[in-house]
């Protein structure tokens, strides 16, 4: 049976995978659990570490760039982006 990928993307409050979740997204190539904006009020786990304990594998650990001089206060995309995957057997 072919395996299909599920992705869980978590933006954490800190670079520690045990820190809390600020934002999250779900993509499901095996079923229908792909999320969309505003479809959940609470994250599926407390942290990336909690997701790992439930079988999710970390495939991206966020880098921690130092801001360029003069750009220290500029804000943009969320930091601490962890990408996790699960492979699901499909019929």
């Amino acid at each position: 049976m072919p395996a299909r990928q599920q992705l869980l993307v978590l933006w954490l409050s800190h670079s520690d995978p045990g820190s809390g979740i600020c934002a999250w997204s779900r993509y499901d190539a095996a079923g229908s659990d792909t999320g969309k904006s505003g479809d959940q009020d609470a994250p599926p786990y407390d942290s990336a570490l909690s997701a790992m304990r439930d079988g999710w594998r970390v495939v991206q650990y966020p880098i921690a760039p130092t801001p360029a001089s003069g750009d220290e206060f500029r804000l943009g995309f969320l930091k601490h982006e962890f990408v996790l995957e699960r492979l699901v057997e499909t019929p």
Binding site: V9, A23, S25, S37, G38, D39, Q40, P43, G76, F77
Partner: peptide
Amino acid sequence: GGTLILPGSQFRMIHEAEAARYQNFR
């Protein structure tokens, strides 16, 4: 389905729908 708003996002410099990777925020 009224407009969904992210409070406190006004200082986040993004261009248009570059934020599409996010689905939900606390």
